[in-house]
C-alpha cells in the first residue's frame, strides 16, 4: 500500500534533514512550497517509509497522510495490450471544436 503524504518542516534545511535516508519517493522533481506553517513537500510513501518519518517527528515537523493510492497494480487494468489504431480507430484529441 502506498500513500500520498505531505511533510512539513520549519526550514528547508530541516526538511532535507527530515527526509534524508527516509526512502521517500519525491516524485518527478522534488517540489517544495512555502506555507504559513513552514516548508512542505508532497511525496509518496510506503508503510516502512511512513514509519521512519513518523519516528523522526519533532517540534516543527509535521506529517499528514493525504490519501491512500491503493494497490498500484490495479492501475494496469487501465491499459490494454491490443492496438486500437489497427482496428480502424483514429487518434483524436480532447479539444472542443470552435467555429470562428
Amino acid at each position: 500500500m502506498l500513500w500520498r503524504v505531505k511533510v512539513t518542516a520549519d526550514s528547508q534545511e530541516d526538511l532535507r534533514r527530515y527526509l534524508e535516508g527516509s526512502g521517500a519517493d519525491l516524485g518527478c522533481r522534488p517540489m517544495a512550497f512555502r506555507e504559513a506553517e513552514g516548508i512542505s513537500i508532497v511525496l509518496i510513501a510506503d508503510r516502512e517509509t511512513l514509519d521512519r518519518l513518523s519516528a523522526r517527528r519533532s517540534a516543527g515537523r509535521r506529517l499528514v497522510r493525504l490519501e491512500a493510492l491503493g494497490d498500484p497494480k490495479a492501475r494496469t487494468a487501465l491499459c490494454g495490450s491490443r492496438n486500437r489504431f489497427l482496428k480502424g480507430e483514429r487518434p483524436r484529441g480532447y479539444g472542443e471544436r470552435v467555429d470562428s
Binding site: R92, G93, G95, R97, V98, S100
Partner: peptide
C-alpha cells in the same frame, strides 16, 4: 490530433 484536425477542418479549439 487536435492541431491537425483544426487545420484541416479550419476550426478553432477550446480546452
Amino acid at each position: 490530433a487536435d492541431i491537425l484536425s483544426a487545420a484541416s477542418g479550419r476550426h478553432g479549439l477550446e480546452y
